[in-house]
Amino acid sequence: MFDRLKMAAIVAGVAGAALLAGFAYTGGATGQTSSLQTGASAPAFTGIGTWINSAPLDQAQLRGKVVLVDFWTFDCINCAHTLPHVKDWYARYHDKGLVVVGVHTPEYSFERDTGNLKNAVKRFGIEYPVAQDNQYATWDAYGNQYWPALYLFDQNGKLVYSHFGEGRYAETEGKIRGLLGLDGKQG
């Protein structure tokens, strides 16, 4: 998992060695937060240059649906580890009211290229909507700091759960199932 500010400092050479020593993947340890807190309304998908697998989406269209927003970038190994789970949730629950939106916010310059992103979406077999957030506008609207980052919103567009990094897949799926009213049911 990467913290954008630490990475920028490392690339710029500002206290690089000190930051690098503390720049470790934490597996979604407790204490990690974004500025978006539980109960907050879903921010708009803003500054999106390209939508893949979908026409542009907005929060008004998504009312009445459970929405999982996944911040990722295609050259992030931690994101690659979470993708099979996100794709599985989409496959299992999209016909039950789950909308998954992958917000691709690039870390490296080659990830900004729409052709490269489209190739990655195809290579990973992603069928849900992907928003290309090259300007970090949606990233900033969420106050996000991590790749990967999951934000789960209820049918009223309120944040009920977030997780940063790998892991907690059963917990995340449990939250999805609960919002969809599938607790204790096969689905």
Rank of each mutant, 00 (worst) to 15 (best):
residue 36 L to K: 04
residue 146 Y to W: 15
residue 153 F to Q: 06
residue 78 N to K: 07
residue 111 E to V: 08
residue 126 I to W: 07
residue 21 A to I: 09
residue 160 V to L: 08
residue 148 P to V: 03
residue 151 Y to T: 07
residue 176 I to F: 07
residue 93 Y to W: 13
residue 111 E to S: 14
residue 158 K to C: 09
residue 145 Q to P: 00
residue 119 N to M: 12
residue 148 P to M: 04
residue 42 A to I: 09
residue 41 S to G: 08
residue 23 F to R: 07
residue 147 W to D: 07
residue 25 Y to A: 09
residue 117 L to S: 08
residue 105 T to A: 13
residue 123 R to M: 13
residue 41 S to V: 06
residue 106 P to A: 11
residue 166 E to C: 01
residue 90 Y to L: 06
residue 160 V to H: 08
residue 99 V to M: 14
residue 12 A to Q: 14
residue 16 G to T: 12
residue 40 A to H: 08
residue 136 Y to W: 15
residue 9 A to L: 14
residue 20 L to K: 14
residue 75 D to R: 10
residue 4 R to W: 09
residue 187 G to Y: 08
residue 39 G to W: 05
residue 22 G to C: 03
residue 35 S to N: 04
residue 167 G to I: 02
residue 79 C to P: 08
residue 180 L to C: 00
residue 61 Q to K: 11
residue 67 V to F: 05
residue 114 T to S: 14
residue 143 G to D: 11
residue 136 Y to I: 00
residue 3 D to H: 10
residue 15 A to S: 13
residue 130 V to I: 14
residue 108 Y to V: 12
residue 86 V to A: 03
residue 59 Q to S: 09
residue 14 V to P: 00
residue 118 K to E: 14
residue 9 A to T: 03
residue 50 T to K: 14
residue 163 H to G: 01
residue 56 P to E: 04
residue 108 Y to A: 11
residue 69 V to Y: 05
residue 79 C to A: 04
residue 134 N to F: 03
residue 108 Y to P: 02
residue 18 A to T: 12
residue 32 Q to E: 14
residue 134 N to W: 10
residue 99 V to R: 13
residue 18 A to I: 12
residue 59 Q to F: 04
residue 88 D to K: 15
residue 177 R to W: 02
residue 159 L to T: 05
residue 69 V to I: 10
residue 121 V to K: 12
residue 180 L to D: 03
residue 53 N to R: 07
residue 145 Q to V: 07
residue 185 K to D: 00
residue 61 Q to L: 00
residue 159 L to V: 04
residue 95 D to M: 11
residue 50 T to G: 00
residue 137 A to W: 08
residue 145 Q to D: 10
residue 182 L to C: 00
residue 124 F to M: 11
residue 17 A to F: 11
residue 40 A to D: 15
residue 71 F to R: 02
residue 116 N to K: 14
residue 170 A to R: 11
residue 167 G to A: 01
residue 77 I to Y: 03
residue 117 L to R: 11
residue 182 L to F: 02
residue 172 T to K: 03
residue 173 E to M: 03
residue 20 L to Y: 13
residue 42 A to Y: 01
residue 112 R to T: 13
residue 27 G to C: 06
residue 176 I to V: 15
residue 124 F to R: 12
residue 46 T to S: 13
residue 69 V to Q: 09
residue 73 T to Q: 09
residue 187 G to V: 05
residue 115 G to I: 12
residue 176 I to Y: 09
residue 143 G to H: 10
residue 148 P to D: 10
residue 67 V to Y: 01
residue 42 A to Q: 13
residue 183 D to S: 12
residue 63 R to W: 08
residue 104 H to E: 13
residue 151 Y to S: 05
residue 86 V to I: 15
residue 163 H to W: 08
residue 52 I to K: 06
residue 37 Q to K: 13
residue 12 A to M: 09
residue 174 G to Y: 05
residue 28 G to E: 06
residue 19 L to V: 15
residue 160 V to R: 14
residue 16 G to V: 02
residue 141 A to H: 10
residue 164 F to L: 04
residue 28 G to P: 08
residue 52 I to C: 00
residue 77 I to L: 05
residue 52 I to G: 07
residue 86 V to M: 03
residue 24 A to I: 10
residue 98 L to M: 09
residue 80 A to N: 08
residue 61 Q to F: 01
residue 172 T to M: 04
residue 159 L to Y: 09
residue 48 I to S: 00
residue 4 R to H: 12
residue 166 E to Q: 10
residue 88 D to Q: 15
